[in-house]
Design a protein around this nucleic acid. Structure first.
Lengths: 195, 195
DNA sequence: AAAGCGTTTGACGATTATGTTAAACGCCTT
DNA sequence: AAGGCGTTTAACATAATCGTCAAACGCTTT
């Protein structure tokens, strides 16, 4: 890995901000350059093409979650102990970067052919994931539930805030903090249904 | 409402398909015209501008869910009776149009200032929604849970399919059908935790 | 057959986006 | 002070996008 120059960092920061907000096609190289306060040609100097710049941003966005997923599927801990930790980690990650889920999901939805590569990068073997859950009834649904409950509120943030919190963003944030404490209990209840 | 000509219907169909897939900025008028097999100028003839065409598509996308949400918040039925029905309706709606959640959420995330207008269109008064749930502990979290559990799997479809179903789309669909039966029970368990 | 009307088409103009190139700049080394 | 190297800049070439307009088309009405 090469050392990153200051301009390079500014570029990535602005590119993240704008790509997250308006998407790849909705953001021009000029937009990014303006936001970073630099000449547009510098983007090409450092990243060659828009595609490559986007790729860098996309990979960085993924890199924040890969360890979370990976730890989940590689750990030897029992589900009951693992779940509360995972919930905390995921929600904390979401609070830090609330725009990432929509960004990543939209990109993967547009280009689902990316998935195999993404799984590779994550170092996750789907076969093993499935094997790990063979003991637990409705294993797949439980995994889906776990991530749904943690991630969706952020993906649907404007709707949730508008509908349930009267547009009050602070209230939303507070609720998400509270959620970290409530969810594990709820989730374990939900797991036990078929035993 | 005016009667819709055949070309108009073709335009909307192609616009939906492409906007859903690649977003507003990622889709050109030419793309839509090509997909519809017509001359590009016709898009302007029928919808004046790209913005207006997009608006038509966005509203139509919303219109599929508005009644679901509205019925949820307007019904007099007890939560316990309402929930299973709502779960069925939402998942059925998702199966019919799996791309809509990402599309709508991405648009609302990019332009959250749309929310008030959207709520207006839905004929929903947030104040009343909140009042309705005052009796139930963690009311807001339960609402969030309900929609998370139903909608998120579709928003994250490529990830879910890749990670849990080995890329087998039919398996995903089957699991979502199964989910309609499983979720109500799970959810009601989850609700009862604080009583 | 001519006129009229809504629909469709091709061509145009203005704007914007991307990537390349060659020159300018700044700084460090010799 | 001169040369060298990485960085930054301005200008250019190419292609794509969007909206408009006037002409062509097709079908019905007179």
């Amino acid at each position: 890995m090469e050392l990153q120059t200051e301009t390079e960092l500014k570029i990535v920061a602005s590119a993240e901000k704008l790509f997250y907000q308006k998407g790849k096609a909705g953001t021009s190289m000029q937009n990014i350059a303006d936001d970073a306060g630099i000449n547009r040609t510098l983007l090409n100097y450092y990243f060659r093409t828009k595609d490559q710049l986007f790729e860098a941003v996309f990979r960085k966005a993924l890199s924040g979650f890969v360890p979370l997923l990976a730890s989940m599927f590689k750990s030897d801990e029992a589900f009951e102990l693992l779940v509360p930790k995972v919930i905390h980690s995921i929600i904390d990650a979401m609070m830090a970067n609330p725009q990432i889920p929509i960004f990543v999901l939209q990109e993967l939805s547009s280009n689902p052919e990316r998935m195999p590569q993404v799984l590779m990068d994550m170092g996750i073997d789907p076969e093993k994931v499935i094997k790990k859950g063979e003991g637990q009834a409705h294993f797949r649904h439980l995994i889906i539930n776990l991530f749904s409950l943690c991630i969706f509120p952020f993906a649907a943030r404007p709707v949730v805030t508008g509908l349930l919190f009267n547009g009050d963003n602070d209230a939303f944030v507070a609720a998400m903090h509270q959620r970290k404490e409530i969810l594990p209990e709820m989730f374990l209840k939900l797991m036990s249904q078929n035993q």
